[in-house]
Simulated assay, not measured.
Amino acid sequence: MTEPYELDVRPLLRNGGEPFGAIMGAVGNLAPGQGLRLLATFRPEPLFKVMEAKGFSYFAKPIEGGDWEVLFFPDDVGGTSPAALARDNDPDNWPDPTHYLDCTKMDPPEPMVHILGQLESMPKGQVLFALLGREPVFLFPELQARGHSWVGDFDADGAAFRLMVRAGGA
């Protein structure tokens, strides 16, 4: 398998530039079957649909400093490919949450303890929804280390952080 091509657009973004042209240029120069490892200052949601239309699935994860790493894999047939695993980690493909936790009135580390405890009792593939009073930055590495997939963001008011976690991610 060919190593993914790495493209770091963080410097361009930090200087106010638009990275779309550089990304599409890189995609156009990929070898057959080659993926793209993209480093960005934010989770590039609009790019996911563009890349899907070009035959790529993705796996996105936060990295240090609030930046994001996104691995784009060419789609193929077989179900056990990196692309298939990335599809499993796409929240659009997750089932509706089966467990709900309201952690808005809890102080750290209570939300982390409750969320990890609930996940321990959940079968692989089930989804937990949690509402928190702040972004759980110390929870994210724990979720990753335990093989769970997650997505989260603040609500429209910025008053609560909404978190969805899929138990036993790839």
Rank of each mutant, 00 (worst) to 15 (best):
A86W: 13
D88G: 01
D67L: 02
P97N: 10
M106D: 15
P95S: 08
A86V: 09
P109N: 12
E69P: 02
M112V: 09
M106T: 00
S81K: 12
P95A: 13
N93A: 12
T104F: 04
H99N: 04
H114M: 10
N89P: 00
M112A: 09
D92N: 11
E110H: 04
T98G: 10
W94E: 01
V113K: 00
D76V: 06
P108D: 13
P91G: 01
D76G: 11
D107G: 08
P82G: 11
V70R: 01
E69S: 06
L71Q: 08
P108K: 10
S81P: 03
D92I: 13
M112E: 06
C103Q: 08
D90A: 05
M112L: 05
W94I: 00
P74R: 07
D88M: 12
K105L: 12
G78R: 11
F73P: 00
E64Y: 02
D75C: 07
V113P: 00
T98M: 09
W68T: 04
W68K: 03
V70D: 03
W94N: 01
D90I: 05
C103E: 15
F73Q: 03
A83T: 01
P91Q: 13
T104Y: 02
N89C: 15
V77K: 08
H99I: 15
D92A: 15
G66N: 03
H114W: 04
D107F: 14
P111F: 07
P91C: 07
D92P: 00
D96V: 15
V70T: 10
M106P: 00
P109V: 09
L85R: 13
H114S: 08
